[in-house]
Amino acid sequence: MTGQTEAVPAQGSAGGQLQVSLNGETLALPAGSTLDALLQARDLDPMTHATAVNGQFVPRDARAAHALQEGDTVMCFQAIVGG
């Protein structure tokens, strides 16, 4: 679905939207959305996924306070264990 915009449900939004890219998919989010809210809206398990915003790793305990900004590029992936 690259190149398409998909809306993410608002959670107590006070107006306005921003667009971010999640793994190459453009999403419209309520202004003030956090990285944690994005993961919840997309049903991504925060315990099994690693996240980076604009190429910078965001630790699990910092996601709730990490407000997303217009044009942010978010990468979310599951770690693969093996050898």
Rank of each mutant, 00 (worst) to 15 (best):
Q69A: 10
P9C: 04
N54K: 06
N23Q: 09
V8R: 03
M1W: 13
A7P: 07
A79R: 12
N54S: 08
A41D: 03
R42P: 04
I80W: 00
F77W: 15
G55P: 00
V74W: 00
A65G: 14
A14Q: 11
P46M: 05
A14N: 13
N54L: 09
A41I: 01
A67L: 13
Q4L: 13
A37I: 07
R42N: 12
Q69I: 02
E6C: 08
T48M: 11
S21N: 07
Q40C: 04
L27I: 05
P9S: 08
N54Q: 12
P9A: 08
L29F: 01
A50M: 10
L68E: 02
D72M: 03
D61N: 14
D61Y: 12
V8T: 13
P9D: 06
S33F: 07
V81S: 14
G12E: 04
V20R: 02
L27D: 03
Q17V: 14
Q17P: 03
R60M: 11
A79D: 05
T51P: 00
F57M: 09
A31T: 08
Q17F: 11
P46G: 09
D72A: 02
G16L: 03
A50Y: 06
T26E: 08
V8C: 07
L44Y: 06
D43I: 02
T5Y: 07
A62E: 15
Q4E: 15
L38M: 14
A37D: 12
A31R: 10
A50D: 06
P9I: 05
T26P: 00
D45E: 10
A64D: 12
V20W: 03
G15L: 05
A31P: 01
R42C: 15
D72F: 01
L44P: 02
A28N: 02
G16I: 05
L18R: 11
C76F: 04
Q56C: 05
L18C: 08
G24K: 05
Q56T: 06
G12L: 08
V20T: 02
G24Q: 04
C76R: 07
S33N: 08
Q40K: 10
P59V: 07
G24L: 06
C76S: 15
V8M: 10
T2E: 14
C76G: 08
I80T: 01
I80C: 02
A67R: 14
M75D: 10
N23F: 08
A65R: 14
M47T: 14
L39K: 10
F57S: 02
P30M: 07
Q56L: 11
A41L: 04
S13K: 12
A67D: 09
G82P: 07
R60T: 09
V8N: 02
V8K: 05
G12V: 08
Q40Y: 07
V20I: 14
H66Q: 06
V58I: 15
G16N: 01
M1N: 10
G32Y: 01
Q56A: 09
E6D: 09
G82E: 09
G71W: 06
A64H: 08
P9K: 06
G55L: 00
G55I: 00
Q56W: 00
G71K: 05
T48L: 14
T51K: 01
A52Y: 04
V8Q: 03
G12C: 09
N23I: 07
V58G: 05
T2S: 14
G55W: 00
E70A: 12
M47P: 04
P46A: 09
G82W: 08
L27P: 04
H49R: 11
R42L: 13
L29W: 04
A62S: 15
V81Q: 15
P59K: 12
